[in-house]
Design a protein around this nucleic acid. Structure first.
Length: 466
DNA sequence: ATGTAC
C-alpha cells in the first residue's frame, strides 16, 4: 500500500510502467492474484503510457482484467480487442421520470411485465423491432442519429449520450456475419449481468448536480445495462481470429493479442469497434423507446408529460482516442477502459455537461443499489479520467450457481419489495446479490480517493433479467 | 459477455 485505498506494483520483469490498484485492504484480501497478474501483463504491452490502473471492482477477464484502464501512445502503441472486451460498448443508460414512488408503487409489476413483453431478453430472439440491411448500415455509421431521424428518440437524447451516440466509424470493416447477428437484436437486452431496473431515488448527496441531471429524491428512475449483443461479440471474434494469424507483437498471454494502432488491421479494428459502439448506443436507445411506450401504456399519458428523459447513456467497454497531459506534454492516446467508466470532471466534458462533468452511472447488484457519480478534478491524473463500472463479481458464475437456490434468491428479493422477472432461473443464481462485492464499499473507495463525487443512490423496485 | 460448443 502506498496510500489509503491505493496500491502499486512497481516495474519488474517486462513491465514498461508500474500498475496501480485502487482498492481497500478488505477487497484486496478477498481476491486472488490472477487479475493482478493480468494487470502486470498489460503493463508490459508496447506503447503503454504512465501506468496500468485497476478499479476496486477488478476481476478476471479475457486477457485484460475487467475493471482495468490502460492508455497507449496513439502513434507508437497498440489497440487490443481483449482490452475492450467481447461486449463492445457494453454500458448503462439512466432514464428519469417525474413520477413519485407513491404514484408508481402499485404499478411496478405492470411496468416490468409490459417492458418484459416488448424487450427480448436471454435466449428470446423474437424481436418485435425490425430493421433492414440499409438501416443496419446507417446504424453502424451514424449511431443514435439514425434512431432520432426515424422517430425513436429526441434531440435531447443525443445531447445526453456519450459521444452524442455517434462515433467515427466504417461499417465496411464489420463482417456480414456480425451484421446478420445484429439485425434481429436491435432493442434487445441480452443475458448474464445485463438488466433493466425500475429504481427509486433513495438518497441525494449533491442536490444541485442531481437536480441538473433531473434526479429528485423518491422519484422513479429506469436503469438499463446492455451492449452491442451478438454484433459486437462477432466483431471481437473476427479481429481476434485475424490477429491470431497475423500479429507478430509479443505478448505475455495469447489473449492480449494486439495490433499497432497505425497498422492496417489496427485501423480497421478501431473502425469496426466504433461501428459496434454505434450499434450499442442504438440498442440502448431503442430500449428507451420501448420503455417510453410501456410507461405510456400503463399510465395513459405521453412520455413527455411523465418526464421520461434520458439522464445519460455511456459505454464501459471501449477504447477511445483521447488527448491527455503526461509530464506537461499533450499526448494523443488510445485509452482502453474495460469494465471501467469514463469519468471526466467539469471542464473536460462538452455540451450539456461542461460545467458539471457528465453523469457516471454505476449499477450495483439487483438487491442493493446503484449510483450516479461525477468525475472529480483529480481524476484525469489518477486514471485518465475513469471510475469503476459496478460492484464487480465476488463469485464466479459457476460458484454462484452452486452457492444459491433460485427460489430462495427470489423470495429474499421479494421480502425486500423487489419484483423480479427473469428469462431463466440460472441467471437468478448467477446474478444473486451474494455473487457481487458490496457496491456501497466500492463507491466509498472511489469517493474517498477523490476520483469521483457521489451524486445520488438508487434502490431497485422492479428488475428484468435475461 | 455470447444463436452459453463451428
Amino acid at each position: 500500500m502506498i496510500d489509503k485505498n491505493k496500491y502499486v506494483i512497481e516495474r519488474t520483469g517486462d513491465m514498461k510502467v508500474p500498475a496501480y490498484i485502487y482498492i481497500n485492504d478488505e477487497l484486496l484480501s478477498k481476491m486472488n492474484d490472477e487479475p493482478l497478474r493480468q494487470l502486470m501483463n498489460v503493463a508490459s504491452l508496447p506503447g503503454i503510457v504512465k501506468a496500468a490502473y485497476a478499479m476496486p471492482d477488478i476481476h478476471l477477464g479475457y486477457g485484460f482484467p475487467i475493471g482495468g484502464v490502460a492508455a497507449f501512445d496513439y502513434d507508437e502503441g497498440i489497440v487490443s480487442p481483449g482490452g475492450v472486451g467481447y461486449d463492445i460498448n457494453c454500458g448503462v443508460s439512466l432514464i428519469k421520470t417525474n413520477i413519485s414512488y407513491n404514484d408508481a408503487k402499485s404499478r411496478i409489476k405492470d411496468l416490468i411485465d409490459e417492458i418484459f413483453k416488448n424487450v427480448p431478453a436471454g435466449i428470446d430472439l423474437k424481436s418485435s423491432f425490425r430493421v433492414n440491411k440499409n438501416d443496419m448500415t446507417d446504424i453502424l455509421s451514424d449511431g443514435i442519429k439514425w434512431a432520432v431521424s426515424k422517430g425513436y428518440g429526441t434531440e435531447r437524447d443525443i445531447e445526453s449520450t456519450e459521444e452524442n451516440g455517434s462515433m467515427n466509424s466504417n461499417p465496411d470493416k464489420v463482417s456480414e456475419k456480425a451484421i446478420s447477428r445484429g439485425i434481429n437484436e436491435v432493442g434487445s437486452l441480452g443475458g448474464g449481468n445485463h438488466f433493466l431496473e425500475i429504481q427509486k431515488v433513495d438518497r441525494i448527496f449533491d442536490e444541485r448536480t442531481a437536480r441538473y441531471f433531473g434526479i429528485e429524491k423518491d422519484n422513479i428512475m429506469i436503469m438499463v445495462h446492455t451492449g452491442s449483443r451478438g454484433l459486437g461479440h462477432q466483431v471481437a471474434t473476427d479481429y481476434l481470429m485475424e490477429l491470431n494469424e497475423k500479429s507478430d507483437i509479443k505478448v505475455k498471454d495469447r489473449q492480449l493479442i494486439s495490433a499497432y494502432t497505425k497498422s492496417g488491421i489496427g485501423e480497421s479494428y478501431i473502425m469496426a469497434m466504433n461501428s459496434a459502439a454505434n450499434f450499442g448506443f442504438v440498442n440502448r436507445q431503442i430500449i428507451l423507446y420501448k420503455i417510453r411506450r410501456a410507461f405510456e401504456s400503463v399510465f395513459k399519458k405521453d412520455f413527455e408529460s411523465l418526464g421520461l428523459d434520458l439522464v445519460y447513456s455511456l459505454a464501459h467497454n471501449m477504447a477511445k482516442i483521447e488527448e491527455h497531459n503526461i509530464d506537461n506534454k499533450r499526448l494523443k492516446l488510445i485509452v482502453h477502459r474495460k469494465g471501467a467508466t469514463r469519468a471526466f470532471p467539469a471542464g473536460y466534458s462538452t455540451g450539456k455537461f461542461k460545467n458539471t462533468g457528465h453523469p457516471v452511472l454505476i449499477p450495483g447488484d439487483m438487491g442493493t443499489a446503484s449510483y450516479v457519480l461525477t468525475g472529480n478534478k483529480n481524476n484525469m491524473e489518477m486514471s485518465f479520467g475513469s471510475s469503476c463500472h459496478g460492484a464487480g463479481r465476488a463469485l464466479s458464475r459457476k460458484k454462484a450457481n452452486d452457492a444459491f437456490n433460485p427460489d430462495d434468491v427470489l423470495k429474499n428479493l421479494g421480502n425486500h419489495g423487489i419484483y423480479v422477472r427473469a428469462a431463466s432461473s440460472k441467471v437468478i443464481t448467477e446474478e444473486a446479490p451474494g455473487s457481487y462485492k458490496d457496491i456501497d464499499e466500492v463507491i466509498k473507495i472511489v469517493s474517498e480517493l477523490g476520483m469521483s463525487n457521489i451524486i445520488s443512490r438508487h434502490v431497485p423496485l422492479g428488475v428484468m433479467k435475461g
